[in-house]
């Protein structure tokens, strides 16, 4: 990693200069929130946006896409060239989620659809100030030195521009005149002061230490039944979660019958059919069982071999759940802490 500086007034010129690296996606305002959208007018980018409703995952494994087409003769791989893309404005929580997703999609078997999109993607991270839903400090994902090609730390009238990969270096080399190679001792002091200020701004105090062992011991807790009574099985929590990659595979047949395509779509472990096998036996018939599955995955361990929890503290599920079952309320309940409604 290497650090340079870029003046704020140069940012739009910089984004213009890196156009050859792909379509720019960034956070823009939508209703009372933000969405990750393709941006052509840079002034639409919301630099202070914290979380987009749907995270970056939609650009790496879209909600629905074609795996391959088939006809009477057999299957045909797609020969469609995917566009290059630059995702702008990912904060440390999402960058941690991206690292988890990169790892997940190459563990044991490489997922070719993910890899294809990932290899065409450049990532520009952006520093942030926490709001009352951010708990990345509790999940220890509030800083990152990995997962980005470039990362901007906002220090007032300029950014520190961290170069995290060879691809990031290529981007900077498109416009060397826009960056300042010299990072001074004064800048370092500003950076340290910024960190202190940011650290003191976390309002949501959660303690996630010992969560895996608490999950293990709470497996039969009556809490799950109470939460199961409330849960609507809507799946909103899984849609907004940056580390929820589960999918369903559905064949679509064209009218006439002979041709069609195999599609992959986001699925949710909150849905009733998720664990149902042929013949109708359902390994997770009760909503409480499905909730337990999701939170074990997030708070205890992701994939066995991974050995780490998958929650990055982005706070999306806190806003998304219509009945306030989220990572915060579940963790607090399990630890017997007071939960504010």
């Amino acid at each position: 990693m290497r650090a340079v500086k870029i003046k704020k007034e140069n940012l739009f010129d910089f984004l213009e200069a890196i156009k050859p690296f792909g379509d720019l996606w960034g956070p823009v305002k939508s209703g009372d929130g933000y969405v990750l959208e393709k941006v052509t007018d840079y002034s639409n980018i919301e630099m202070s946006a914290l979380r987009t409703r749907i995270p970056f995952k939609k650009l790496l494994f879209p909600p629905k896409f074609t795996m391959f087409k088939f006809d009477e003769k057999g299957i045909r791989s797609s020969d469609e060239e995917l566009p290059r893309q630059v995702i702008f404005g990912l904060h440390p929580c999402d960058l941690h989620a991206l690292l988890i997703m990169d790892n997940f999609h190459s563990l044991h078997y490489v997922d070719p659809y993910y890899r294809e999109r990932r290899e065409r993607t450049a990532v520009i991270g952006l520093s942030c100030f926490p709001d009352d839903r951010c708990f990345c400090k509790a999940t220890n994902t509030h800083y990152t030195e990995k997962g980005f090609d470039l990362f901007l730390t906002d220090l007032g009238d300029f950014y520190i521009l961290w170069i995290g990969s060879s691809l990031g270096d290529d981007m900077v080399r498109e416009c060397p005149e826009l960056v300042d190679e010299e990072v001074t001792h004064d800048d370092l002091e500003k950076y340290i002061a910024w960190r202190k200020k940011r650290e003191s701004n976390f309002k949501l105090k959660l303690d996630f230490t010992g969560m895996p062992s608490i999950m293990e011991l709470s497996y039969d807790s009556p809490l799950w039944d109470e939460l199961g009574e409330k849960c609507l099985s809507c799946g909103a929590c899984t849609i907004v979660c940056p580390t929820c990659p589960c999918f369903n595979v559905i064949d679509e047949v064209d009218i006439g019958g002979g041709t069609g395509e195999r599609t992959r779509r986001w699925d949710s472990c909150m849905f009733r059919e998720y664990s149902m096998v042929a013949g109708g036996h359902n390994f997770r018939e009760a909503r409480s069982e499905r909730l337990k599955l999701r939170f074990t995955h997030k708070l205890q361990a992701f994939v066995g071999a991974f050995g780490e929890a998958a929650c990055v503290g982005c706070g999306r599920c806190i806003g998304a759940c219509p009945v306030d079952i989220d990572i915060q309320t579940v963790a607090q309940n399990l630890k017997g802490e007071e939960v504010k409604a």
């Binding site: 997940f104 999609h105 563990l107 044991h108 078997y109 997922d111 990659p245 589960c246 999918f247 369903n248 595979v249 699925d267 472990c269 998720y274 664990s275 599955l293 995955h297 994939v303």
Partner: peptide
């Protein structure tokens, strides 16, 4: 292949 999640 360990991706879709259904068999967890």
């Amino acid at each position: 292949v360990g991706k879709c999640g259904h068999c967890i």
